[in-house]
Write a protein that binds this DNA or RNA. Structure first.
Lengths: 236, 236
DNA sequence: GAGTGGTCTAGACCACCCC
DNA sequence: GGGTGGTCTAGACCACTCG
């Protein structure tokens, strides 16, 4: 662990724990330099992490202050390495998956383009219904290049693909580009998700990238509108 | 304009214009140092801006490469200062507003808490339907403290509140915390938005903060699912 | 082994806020 | 005027990739 991350983590703890309540000023950058025996640029990097996460604001000429964020958000913000599959975001709760489809196909042209593949390459074609505490929450349609993510099996799909990619394949996930909208479920989706009344779905179309910039996932997931919300902080 | 922003802008232009096509390696950090006669840390800041925007990836030991992003995304990413009201995100198109409600009230307890007010403070209570090219797109329910945003008038509501805040009041917007979900419209909303069939809405609940950390807006906006999508890039 | 980006230092000066 | 964060320098060493 590098210095600026340590400092960021310590500060974050103090904010989340309430040692720095909302609205209070935190230690000056130059004080933090002394306290941790680091240069000011290193302190700034640490503090900027928390700004990015939405926990604090800096005022030139005045100091750095804890933002007034609700407790629930506070925890969410401090946890969210913003990067997680469904399994991770439901940490603590029992997550299960029902596999509707698992095959290997050639990608359609538009998806091949998004994943930088040729139409005679192969991709996994996965459809899963994912449940938390045995309640269906989301149906997920996913395409992944078999070259990049070899060895995918049903057993893995039942758990977490992201865990497999990171822990077994030792690949790192760099970023995800998302498009979020609202849609109505099809009849099949209503059945899979156990929806009886009129309930909209939150659709997230995602292209996810590895560390080296290669796209490794194209997916569309449709979440029950009454069970899921997507949170985001944008700064500057 | 500071140095790192200039460098970031120049690089962004080269990427968006196609001078650096997707997948290509961009100039080395040490080369950019020489080219712009700046230190390496300054170059890194510039390059990191573009990483944050999702345009490029850095590979330690190899170099920095343009991500393969669709052209439409490319422009969106490079534009999006991620910060905009509805008016700004529809730049170029004619945006109009119909004011459904504009009054001054005491905030309810939960909203007072979110805006750091007491229940005997006052807030504007605004409901607007906003249209692009005269087509209703979104209905917006907004509360704003009158102390922070004085002088709001109907004329302003018809245009852009954000423009008023930034250009007239000279206040700066620092961040927004959002919660996004999918809902069904009420009867009134269907009427206001001209919805006849079964169409879901994308709901965005937002608390927006000024430069100095004070929350100045609590709003819930409900967008026609067939007209609007929300885009987001998350890195690391 | 040569070359890349990642982290870090110990300063410096500037822009801004508040007294 | 005194103190804050913002930007920047000119180095240094480290971790990683690749041939």
């Amino acid at each position: 662990m590098v210095k600026y991350q340590n400092i960021a983590n310590e500060l974050r703890k103090k904010i989340v724990s309430g040692e720095y309540p909302p609205g209070t000023q935190i230690a000056l950058e130059r004080e933090l330099c002394e306290k941790y025996s680091v240069s000011r640029i290193t302190v700034k990097r640490a503090v900027d992490e928390l700004v990015k996460q939405g926990l604090i604001v800096k005022r030139r000429g005045s100091g750095t202050f804890v933002k007034s964020v609700e407790d629930s958000d506070m925890k969410a913000l401090s946890m969210s390495r913003q990067f997680e599959g469904f399994t991770e975001s439901y940490q603590g709760k029992k997550v299960t998956s029902k596999i509707i489809k698992f095959s290997i196909v050639h990608p359609k042209e538009d998806i091949a383009a998004k994943l930088l593949l040729k139409s005679d390459d192969f991709v996994y074609d996965v459809v899963r219904v994912r449940c938390a505490l045995d309640v269906p929450i989301v149906i997920e349609y996913m395409k992944m290049p078999i070259q990049l993510i070899p060895g995918l099996k049903k057993e893995i799909l039942k758990k977490s693909i992201y865990a497999y990619i990171q822990n077994e394949l030792k690949l790192k996930i760099q970023s995800a580009h998302r498009r979020i909208c609202a849609v109505m479920p099809s009849k099949e989706e209503k059945a899979y998700l156990g929806i009886e009344s009129t309930l909209p779905l939150l659709e997230i179309e995602q292209i996810a990238f590895l560390d080296d910039g290669r796209p490794f996932e194209y997916s569309v997931s449709r979440h029950r509108g009454d069970k899921i919300a997507f949170k985001s902080v944008s700064v500057r």
